[in-house]
Every structure is written in C-alpha cells, then in structure tokens.
C-alpha cells in the first residue's frame, strides 16, 4: 500500500532531529573528553590527560563509586518497596476502576514540580522535621535523629520516593496481565501460596521488574538535584561533578565524567535489554 519511500519520508523529521540534537551532542561529548584542558581554556589537541586525572583522583573516582553505590541501593529498595505494592494492585484488587484509581494515586505527585518535591523532604526529615516531631511526641525517641537529613540516607530516601513509581507501574502492569485462571488452576492443583508466587507470579512479572529497573537506573544515574538539595552538598554524585566542572568551564573534565556515566548506564541497560525486548512489552 505505502512505498518504502513513504515510510522514510514519515521518519525523516524524527531521524534528522535525533541525529542533530541527540547523536551529535553525545559524539561531541566523547570527542571533547580527549581535548587538552588548561585552567582557563581548552584546546582541541588530543590527549588522555583528563582521563588519567579522573581515574587517579580520589574525589572523582570516589564520586563514581558513590554514584554506583547509591544507584544500586536505590534500585534494590525500589524493587523491595515497589513489588509488594504492585502485587497488591495487580493481583489483590479485582475491581478495575479501583485498580486504576490506585495507580493514578501513585502518579499524581508527578504533577508537582520535581524540584519542589525534592525540597519538600527538608521539613520532613530535618532535626526539627515532621518525622522527628512525630516520633518524639509518640515517645519512641527522646532526642531527634540527626542522620535523617543532609546525609546519604536522606538522598536515598528522596530518590526512592521520587522514582519508586517507575518500578510500581511496569510491575503492576505485568502482574495485572496474569490470567486469574492460571493462579486458580494452580491452587486447585494444591500449589501453596509461596509456590504460586515463585513459579507463576515472579517469572511473569520479571519483564516489568526489568523495565522498571531500566527506568530507575537511567534516572538515578543522571541525578544531581536530589543530592544537592538533600545532602547539603556533602554527597557528590557524578552528576554533581559535571555541574561543578561546567560551572568552572572545565569542559574536558565534565566530558570525561559524562562519558563514564554513559558507559556505566549503557552497560546496565544493554544487559537488561538482552533479558527483555522492550518493543514486545507495549
């Protein structure tokens, strides 16, 4: 019906846009990471000095390790917190309207500015924050817990709250798709709740977990705002490094950090995509 030419004509605006404004900048980033950086200027003379500096510096290499550590912690916590919620929404709520309502409830916070959502944690976690006041009033603690704010913990709490929905959504979607008769059949055959979970629900919800993990990964690895808002600039992620380097016009160094971040992320996403085909999950 439609010629191949027509297909490419329809695709051309998108392809041109992506090539100019996505592929070209990324290639530029790799290119600039090999430029020669001096304190006040940058020259397009190829060198690996910035790379050597990055991996030999405790500050930067430490930031890389910290980024990976926080990303991994957030990823695990979002799975542990998100899975039971998704299971409840997907399997235990039979009413479709209620199911949708619950999912919408989870999404509503997204209509508030991301930055304000991050800032809202400050009066929550602070020394005189809501949690400390509540716990003290209930008599659970005597003195306020101080590690709640301006630590790695507060960054993790903030990130989990912001990104956990990206885990709940895909998992709930996959669990909701499981045919109820499959579970009933298994129960009739005498399978225990645990067996049903392990043999039916877990494998069938795996694509959801993976899609969710990809979402959380790409968002957390690119993060810097949560860290700067909730750590009092004490916790520096690779994202923060890029921001400060750009601020002091150290382009080559920022580019090195960017390429490293891209490699870490691409590796993880590529592994995940080997396990699940994103296109078939639509």
């Amino acid at each position: 019906m439609r010629s191949n030419k027509g297909t490419w004509l329809l695709l051309s605006p998108g392809i041109i846009w992506i090539t100019l404004f996505l592929v070209a900048p990324l290639i530029m980033m790799i290119y600039v990471s090999f430029w020669t950086q001096t304190t006040f200027s940058i020259k397009p003379d190829m060198t690996v000095v910035s790379w050597v500096n990055f991996f030999s510096s405790d500050t930067y290499f430490g930031a890389l390790l910290r980024t990976i550590r926080i990303w991994f912690t957030v990823l695990m916590v979002t799975i542990l917190v998100g899975f039971p919620v998704a299971l409840y929404i997907g399997q235990f709520i039979k009413n479709k309207t209620l199911q949708t309502a619950l999912l919408v409830t989870c999404v509503i916070p997204f209509w508030t500015s991301f930055l304000i959502r991050v800032l809202a944690w400050r009066p929550m976690l602070g020394k005189e924050g809501a949690i400390n006041i509540l716990l003290q009033k209930m008599g659970i603690i005597n003195a306020p817990i101080e590690v709640l704010l301006y630590t790695e913990l507060s960054v993790i709490i903030g990130m989990v709250q912001i990104y956990v929905v990206f885990m709940v959504g895909p998992i709930a979607f996959m669990i909701g798709r499981i045919d109820g008769s499959l579970i009933e059949g298994a129960r009739d055959l005498g399978a225990s709740t645990w067996t049903i979970f392990r043999r039916i629900i877990l494998p069938l919800s795996m694509p959801g977990v993976i899609v969710g993990a990809i979402f959380v990964t790409v968002m957390v690895l690119g993060e810097f705002a949560t860290a700067s808002a909730l750590s009092g600039r004490k916790v520096n992620l690779l994202g923060n490094i890029i921001i400060t380097q750009v601020g002091s016009l150290k382009w080559a160094f920022a580019a090195v950090a960017g390429v490293v971040l891209t490699v870490v992320m691409a590796t993880f996403v590529a592994i995940m995509l080997r396990i699940v085909n994103l296109r078939n999950q639509l």
Binding site: F21, A24, I243, W251, G258, M265
Partner: peptide, 23 residues
C-alpha cells in the same frame, strides 16, 4: 530507529545538556 528514538528519553539530561553545550 526504534532504539535511537527511545535513547532520547533514556540518556540522562545532564549528559545531553553537556553534549549540547559543547556542540
């Protein structure tokens, strides 16, 4: 083409912003 388009939502904003500034 599919994955190139999807890349746009996957690449962290900081990286893309940085690349664009350099470009």
């Amino acid at each position: 083409v599919f994955y190139s388009v999807i890349l746009g939502m996957i690449v962290p904003g900081v990286l893309l912003g940085l690349g664009m500034v350099l470009l």
